[in-house]
Amino acid sequence: MIVKIAAIVTIVVVSLIGLITYYVGASASEKKDGFQPSLYKIRSVYFTLLIVVIAGVLMVTLSSESMPYVQMKKGNPDVVVNVTGRIWAWELSSEQVPVNKVIEFALQSEDVNHGFAIYSPEGKIVAQSQVMPGYVNKLRYTFTEPGEYKILCLEYCGVAHHTMISSIKVVEEAAFTGGNQ
């Protein structure tokens, strides 16, 4: 959903930028002054609108439940999966997790920086975090659909970076047998 909104907003705004560029460019061959006071008025309106839009979007997005850091403040997770990244493989303490439960991935690296990205069975990124040597990055995510999710490395980590792939099964709670609960 967020990706769709981002893509649509981008198409609309970029089209608008293109139209304004065309309009100003097309007018430029004609010579006529005296429009400046009107331009300053438009600028004042634009300035006010821009501040309102920026303030609004900042408030909505920074207070959103989708902020990746928000989940960490919500008590204990239901399941913890310890993940170790090393060139060029992932090691997960559990190969399956239950659906509709808060899963905490405790991510660490044994060598260089990696990127832990979870892809849905349809091939869309649903969550991600960097995996940095010397730190345990905690990523919390609640899977709402069962299925086989894939883990891809999204931080370039050397010549076989593009092969650093693993998977995790999301199962119904009754079928869940592993993990550190």
């Binding site: 967020i2 981002a6 997005t61 990746p68 990124i125 969550a127 991600q128 999204l154």
Partner: peptide, 10 residues
């Protein structure tokens, strides 16, 4: 935008 970056980062 942080919430968008979760999907677009890298």
């Amino acid at each position: 935008t942080i919430v968008v970056n979760s999907y677009f980062h890298n």
